[in-house]
């Protein structure tokens, strides 16, 4: 029952994050959803990842969002839709329903087995290739941010100048 409550709360947070009119609120609701997901993970027997999710997912990412929102500013967009609302409902429910029908019978049949290695062994030894590749990803991220946001002293293209003017 507790799991159901957490799930419901997380989904509410998610919905609020999507619905919130102000971006800052949206980011905070996201942080809430993240925290509840972390809690669920903890309950599922994954304490380490729960901590990391709490600090990175709910903490760091939220800070980044606040930072980005500060840089870009709030923007009031009128209510015009991008695609017809009924279509998005149909697509959403079609896909979710099909996936549920496919998945649900299978997921409860799985059984709990034996734990055979510690987290540290698995993370640093068994999966060391994944772990090493995280460094590459971080590098790509750093280079990406540097590349995208470094100061622009170089020439502006003509189209750019037109747009500024």
């Amino acid at each position: 029952m507790f799991h159901v409550l957490i799930a419901a709360a997380a989904l509410v947070c998610a919905i609020q994050a999507v619905r919130a009119a102000r971006l800052l609120l949206s980011a905070l609701w996201l942080a809430g959803a993240s925290a509840l997901v972390a809690l669920e993970m903890y309950l599922l027997g994954a304490p380490e990842i729960a901590v990391i999710e709490l600090s990175v997912g709910a903490g760091l990412v939220t800070v980044l969002f606040v930072f980005a929102i500060n840089l870009t500013g709030e923007e009031n967009l009128d209510a015009r839709r991008t695609i017809p609302r009924p279509l998005s409902w149909v697509l959403l429910f079609g896909a979710s329903a099909l996936l549920l029908i496919f998945i649900l019978p299978g997921i409860n049949q799985s059984e709990t087995g034996q734990v055979y290695a510690t987290f540290r062994e698995i993370f640093w030894e068994d999966r060391q290739l994944d772990t090493l590749l995280q460094i590459l990803m971080i590098l790509a991220g750093v280079l990406g941010v540097l590349g995208l946001l470094s100061d622009q002293k170089t020439d502006l293209s003509p189209t750019q100048k037109d747009r500024r003017a």
Binding site: G147, Q152, S157
Partner: peptide, 17 residues
Amino acid sequence: AMALCSYVLVAFYRNEA
């Protein structure tokens, strides 16, 4: 990782809309 590397390369001309 491949995707992460390619995102920035696609948007390499970062002053172009």
